[in-house]
Design a protein around this nucleic acid. Structure first.
Lengths: 206, 206, 206, 206
DNA sequence: TATGAATGAGGTTTCATTCAT
DNA sequence: GATGAATGAAACCTCATTCAT
């Protein structure tokens, strides 16, 4: 009997927690959809709760404000991005920029909606984690673990990471408008640019 | 007498026009200052009119809404950018990417406040003209007028322009945070990256 | 066996009742603490249930709303006040105002927190029993049982009770701010004022 | 022409100011009415603006929040009370408690609605000026300027003022419930109590 | 009986926009 | 053309209350 009541108790606790988690997930999914459609600033709490089919107040049971929901969303995805890219890169013998960039583009493609929101929100939202920083951080790691560090002696690594991030971010924005090419072609083009640069004839007078 | 009054009239007209133009300029200058300080979304019309020391209603005599004022501001600056870059490039014998990028960075540096607003606002503002587009357009022109067009045969020119724009935009954002290096070093680093790419050892397995 | 189960049943019932009473007491104690700290209006049900360490819903198993909890609290204390003052007064040979006022001040001093809430809440709470009424009622009883009723012939007794209550209430509020003097000095000062009034020179022209 | 335009200008300014003042007065009058009817806490901004027949936003053009409006109201009335009582007292040859108390009761009677709100709000509202303090301050002044100061040597003047205030406040609350007697009778009864105290037989055992 | 997640009415507050002067 | 008081839609957020577990 004692055991029984205990079991009931934990079950009860568990049910509550499960329901709570479900609602939270619904809210995040709804937020993602609405943010993608209307952008951060034109999205109201009501928009989100209606999309999630919950009461307004429920939102505040899970997030302090719009900012927190947004950050949670972004953090979650970029945490996954980071982990996934790291995993994918590890599965190869050595860390190469090629694999990293490919991995980023693939992941970004799969999560286009969130990436475009995150990039579009730019410096607008008081966010703890910026997309660009996540990407740049990953790139820095690649640079630091380069097989021949001497090759990078003359480069300012953080700046380099930032510039390369610019190319990647722009690629993702490009997708948001154009809906082509696929992630692998995109990665390929970016990598081609990064590997060989542009034709010398563009830089010098005839 | 008729002439006299006519003259007076035109003078008065002229005065009115000058006064109007002055108010408008005040508003734009104020908008620029406030946007730079508080960002697009946190700036209210009242913020602008107070900074310009005019009545709220006056704003609406010159602009339909905040968006229009913002776009006017951006357009103006980018129009100047475009003209200036074109002029500077023309003063050289041939259009080269080096000169173009240098010119862009110099101009951007001189107008850092507006550039950072424009870049930070990202896709937030329902704007017809995006900074990135202005830059990309300029780059496309450079690519099209390349001295040896055959060199670019294998490139997707618009995408290329977009990616290069990403590098430039990121460079400007870098400034907004770091306040170093100067425009010419920045252009140099970007050009180095664009000209030679990164060391091959980053791309391949050992 | 029947008896046994019955016994068990009643025991269980009893346990339940005791548990229930405990919860209720916890809630009242918590309410008292929170009301004293934050005031009636700034106290939410959640504040109370958290302080009592019970679920929100539990509150509603014991009280209809905040008002009822508040009234219960107040009623309880004033019921005790009434009983105690009556008992103390009875222990003397005759009812005198001195003993009554002293008794009230002593009791109020012992329960300062609740008295200050009750007085501060003023007419804010839709309450059936006002502190002032409880005191006034006690005073009326004293007046009615006066040893020489003729002495009070010219007085409007309810109004008199009300005015004297005003003095007492103000004395308690004074404590809340000043934290001095003790209950007996306070009673003494009030009684001195009530017994002899103020110097005649204050009322007339020289 | 210059004069003309100047005149026009000041007139225009003046009109605006007049309109503004009118609206503000409307809001205060409405607030007074609603506060008196529903009490401080049950009054919403909307209640006030609807009663004043202005838009919601207009309220915030004149007051920061409900508190400020309330305080303005109270301050205004008590400022008038103070001035009026002072004036009335001055018109007599010497300051006496009789005149002061009479004056307070008369004024309170004329402004019953506000007094009852102010007294009922008790310590609820974060107010800079409490009614009781205003009255007590006035009484202290009377005591200090007593014709024969020696008579008050044995009294704690601030406490005394506070206690007397209690009597007056209670008198006003009495009116709010009972609607009788008039101000002068009320003052008379209070003064009688204050002058002679209660019959000695109430205090001692037979 | 106790719980606490969910609800949504209702309050506060802001601000783009209008319009009489 | 310039002004700024007034407007009210629309956002935010809280909290008393319910109800399934």
């Amino acid at each position: 009997m004692k055991d029984n009541s205990k079991e009931e108790f934990t079950t009860r606790q568990h049910r509550g927690a499960k329901r709570r988690a479900k609602t939270r997930a619904d809210l995040l999914a709804a937020a993602r959809k609405v943010f993608a459609k209307k952008g951060y600033h034109d999205t109201s709490i009501l928009d989100i709760t209606e999309a999630a089919d919950v009461g307004v107040g429920t939102f505040y049971l899970h997030f302090r404000d719009k900012d927190e929901a947004f950050n949670t969303l972004i953090d979650e995805v970029f945490h996954i991005l980071e982990e996934q890219v790291i995993a994918e890169v590890r599965s190869h013998e050595a860390i190469t920029l090629s694999v990293t960039v490919q991995s980023i583009f693939r992941h970004a493609y799969a999560q286009r909606d969130l990436f475009s929101i995150a990039l579009a929100s730019g410096a607008q939202v008081s966010r703890t984690i910026r997309v660009e920083d996540t990407i740049a951080r990953g790139l820095i790691r690649v640079f630091e673990q380069a097989s021949r560090p001497a090759d990078l002696q003359d480069y300012d690594i953080p700046l380099l990471a930032c510039l390369v991030t610019g190319v990647i971010a722009q690629g993702i924005i490009w997708w948001f408008d154009q809906d082509e090419p696929g992630p692998d072609e995109m990665a390929e083009k970016v990598l081609a640019l990064l590997a060989h640069g542009l034709p010398a004839s563009l830089f010098t007078l005839t």
